[in-house]
């Protein structure tokens, strides 16, 4: 399926944009993280990468749908 990704902070730099569409053959958040880490090796060097689905942090076993709003959340640093 084709999924829409939002990328913030350093993820925006690594993926080369704030919004992008990618082809995804897996099912879960864990699959997506693995997929992205293989495509973008810089992700491995991060302290962490959380994934938000529909504006809330998602667990690894969350199953993704094409209509989901998916966001890549590198380590936050507000304040």
């Amino acid at each position: 399926m084709r999924i829409q990704l939002k990328a913030f902070g350093i993820c925006k730099d690594i993926l080369g944009g704030r919004e992008l569409t990618v082809e995804f053959d897996g099912e879960t958040v864990a699959d997506l993280r693995k997929d992205l880490t293989q495509k973008f090796r810089e992700i491995e060097k991060l302290n962490s990468l959380l994934i938000a689905v529909n504006e809330a942090y998602a667990e690894n076993d969350r199953v993704l749908k094409e209509s989901d709003v998916i966001a890549l959340i590198p380590p936050v640093s507000g304040g």
Binding site: I10, Y57, A71, P74, V76, G78
Partner: peptide, 14 residues
């Protein structure tokens, strides 16, 4: 509140 903000709120600084 400020400690939690720094841990969980999706805001980034360069």
């Amino acid at each position: 509140i400020i400690d939690s903000l720094k841990q969980t709120v999706p805001i980034w600084k360069k």
